[in-house]
Design a protein around this nucleic acid. Structure first.
Lengths: 246, 246
DNA sequence: TAGTGGTCTAGACCACATC
DNA sequence: ATGTGGTCTAGACCACTAA
């Protein structure tokens, strides 16, 4: 029997999904900027020629994906990494007892380099393209706990210097948003246990061989485009990485 | 001015939240059992004397929280740990390359003991209450990769033996559902890096001092009641713990 | 063909924030 | 008082599944 391959489904797409895609374009294009409000539901309904309920469902999903934040009576806002709630949204390390206190950052290094092959692959660059490498140490109770090596594509982050990093008050991702228009939407982490050695042992003031948590984070912006590779080493004697499963 | 403390908000609760609470009760009471379908939206609407849309919103949230699974054209089902999709929903370890292959389990031990103080505290037992301790090793490519020590309250799991564990085909959490009526709804994990030693080094066939991922999982059932404390040690030379941030 | 969930609409009303 | 998001309803119609 000659069966012709059925077309891969004529792609039925609900109206609210189309609206959602249009709204994502506004976000990606920077028309709606982090922290600002977007037009009201009724206005969007008029603009897109659909009912308010349909706009509402689109916004519901965008809010569930952390793109937008609803605030009753005030409006719907573009999510940002600068808010209190989401201050360290991506940092899952926390002290074994109570809540974290004074976090201090110390930038060790910030230089422009050719991206090594593995970094280039992760960031979707061509091998040899320019990239920015940042090294820093986070201390959580006057004791160094995190050593991060951060790689960024040089293009979108042109002009990033050690000074701007250390001068900036607030989360690094907020600086990326406001100064470079790059918003981290989500991230994937690969976690391992490794032994401290060389630079990491020295900067965290630990004997070589101390077990450390290795956290490799790939951060993505709109359209799942990778824009940051972060290799963190966490000392977990008095802190732990917290995760929720559901 | 004598200001009397305002009552802490008279607890306004939307209708759909009340419906949701009622439905959660059915789930908790075991009236609706894992894998089965629940009544259709229209029937529930009639039963609760609300519109279908209101029932729908309640189900939406229960589905988002992994209590229910919708299947268009078929019905709405109580979520279970036995399905293909959610086979190892709570195991985040995966091989560095492709997808996992043959997973083999080996049960080392299963005994009834008095719960140590820390275990009792985590499980909400009184110190000295009976608990079941299980030890097992997971091998992922013929190589041992995970060593688990599992603690369960003896009450709900009365009659659990090493035989029933090794004889059962399928995920352990499915056995807990079908044989003991205990469904894990969500879990919290605390992750650290530690050094292999003694029993763990031996069972994972590693030299002492090898860095291992320590994953302490507290699993909760309905009403956030803790029902399992699991201490896992993962060898992460060829595997990693994967996490999504958003 | 009948039953289920999924989409879309239009309108009424409530809760919250601001002026 | 006004505008925003949040709830609730009733009804029409679509997409999927199974008998």
């Amino acid at each position: 029997m000659a069966t012709t391959a059925a077309p891969p489904t004529p792609a039925f797409s609900p109206l609210y999904q189309q609206i959602k895609a249009l709204m994502l374009r506004e976000l990606q294009a920077g028309v709606w900027r982090p922290g600002e409000t977007i037009p009201s539901e009724t206005e969007l309904a008029g603009r897109f020629k659909v009912s308010q309920g349909t706009v509402r469902k689109a916004i519901d999903e965008l809010a569930a994906e952390n793109h937008l934040v609803r605030r009753q009576g005030k409006g719907t806002f573009v999510a940002t990494h600068g808010e209190q709630q989401t201050q360290f949204r991506f940092l899952r390390l926390q002290p074994d007892d109570g809540v974290s206190e004074g976090t201090t950052r110390r930038f060790i290094d910030c230089r422009r380099l050719r991206a090594p092959a593995d970094v280039a692959r992760a960031l979707g660059l061509r091998s040899g393209d320019a990239a920015i490498q940042i090294k820093r140490v986070l201390s959580l109770r006057d004791a160094p706990v995190v050593f991060d090596e951060i790689w960024l594509p040089a293009g979108p982050f042109k002009g990033l210097t050690a000074e701007r990093l250390s001068d900036y008050r607030g989360p690094m991702y907020q600086l990326f948003e406001s100064e470079f228009g790059v918003r981290m939407v989500r991230a994937e982490e690969k976690i391992r246990a490794v032994a401290a050695q060389g630079e990491s042992a020295e900067l965290l003031a630990l004997p070589e061989g101390t077990p450390l948590l290795s956290v490799e984070r790939l951060s993505l912006t709109y359209g799942d485009k990778p824009v940051e590779l972060r290799r963190g080493l966490y000392h977990t004697a008095t802190h732990h990485y917290r995760n929720e499963l559901s």
